[in-house]
Amino acid sequence: MRALTVRPGRPGSLGVEEVADPEPAAGELLVRGVALGLCGTDREIASGEYGRAAPDRGRLILGHESLGRVAEAPHGSGFNPGDLVAGVVRRPDPVPCGACAHGEFDMCRNGRYRERGIKELDGYGAELWCLETDYAVRVDAALGLAGVLMEPASVVAKAWEQIERVGARAWFEPRRALVTGAGPIGLLAALLGRQRGLDVHVLDRVTDGPKPDLVRALGATYHSDAAGDVLTAVRPDVVVEATGAAALVCEAIRGTAAYGIVCLTGVSPAGRRLTVDAGAVNRAIVLENDVVVGSVNANLRHFRQAADALARADREWLHRLLTRRVPLERAASAFERHADGIKTVITLEGGAR
């Protein structure tokens, strides 16, 4: 079979190569790959900045945003040939830590977890892959190719779960939410905010292209003005920060309404300096009972929440997020950045629409 592989730590090693077909172990599905979504993590791995192959392997099959069609399923597994599925990315560490032992492996304490297509486990960027039934999530067949949004939607589902858990420490009836960044994570965060009945606002720098229209199609409000001005006008109860821009993070922390919650989902690059009035930030957090919480990755529960959210979403809207579709044989071109793009998808077979 063909697979998209890379030698972690070696820039320029990305390629499509022939590898042996996988053999499912007991309790595993054999899945025929349908599509693979790309994100910044994949680009970092391809450029040699990140990623780790298994100790006995030189190459890593890339890809963690999966969509596949079951080819073979164990009897009594609850899955059948033809089912669309997505695979959970992270696996608990073998020790395990307390969080992993309780199924909360997205909150692993010792860092010994493994991740498909990222850290020590081959990913889903192949024509065939195996998947433990305990880490498989059924995708609504009506979603077609948009089912490839399951993994980013799971990250967003976890972020909203964290927001609601933090808010539950006292009376919490948020009305306004601001999402910073209109990439895949930001737009899906806006979708889940609208599904919760919130007045959602989205801030991004672009003024044309598909992003403003996608936000408005949700019944949300799009902004491209200065962050401080938007925060002053909106006074959000909740901010989902999806850019990782350090200055914007600080603006968001200071700009929420009382009892505001800022959930950081974007990772800021290291080495950039920013002068911050730490005292003012401290006063804003303490005197208004504000909270800043980071959120990354997802466990099985969040994938199931994502499946429910996507099944309830407008399918045409979801498909509009898939702005580039590239066949596996031209996978290298999928890593090129396009200014007005949202989600690039590598197609692994022609069966999803």
Rank of each mutant, 00 (worst) to 15 (best):
V88Q: 09
G78R: 06
I163S: 03
A46D: 04
G271C: 08
I61N: 03
I253T: 06
R2P: 00
A284W: 11
V230Y: 00
L214H: 11
S333E: 15
A245I: 14
Y124I: 15
Y222C: 06
C108L: 04
F172R: 11
D134Q: 14
V238P: 01
V200N: 07
A99D: 14
A190H: 07
L274H: 14
L248D: 13
Y222A: 06
P24I: 10
C100A: 10
T207A: 14
V166S: 12
G144M: 03
K158F: 10
D106E: 13
F172Y: 13
V286Y: 10
A242H: 09
R90G: 04
V326S: 03
R196V: 04
A252S: 15
E151A: 10
L131P: 01
L318F: 02
D199T: 07
M150F: 11
E316W: 04
G111S: 02
A71Y: 08
M150H: 13
I163F: 07
H302G: 02
G111W: 08
R254N: 13
G279D: 15
H64W: 04
F335T: 12
G87Y: 01
L62V: 06
D122C: 09
A86V: 01
A73R: 02
K119C: 08
H319P: 08
Q305H: 12
G219L: 14
G111I: 02
A247E: 15
H201Y: 06
R112S: 10
A170F: 12
L38H: 01
A220Q: 06
A242R: 05
A157P: 02
V19C: 05
F335Y: 09
P236D: 00
R194P: 04
L38K: 05
D204N: 14
V291I: 09
G125P: 04
L30V: 11
G271Q: 07
G68C: 04
A311W: 14
R59G: 03
L264C: 02
L131D: 05
E161I: 06
C108K: 04
R109N: 12
D83F: 15
A3L: 02
V70A: 01
D140Q: 03
A331P: 01
G183H: 00
Y259T: 12
W129R: 13
D93S: 11
V31M: 13
K158R: 15
I45D: 01
L14R: 02
T347Q: 09
H201T: 10
A227I: 13
H319F: 03
R165M: 12
L192E: 07
A217G: 13
A159E: 02
R272S: 13
A245V: 15
R235P: 05
P327D: 00
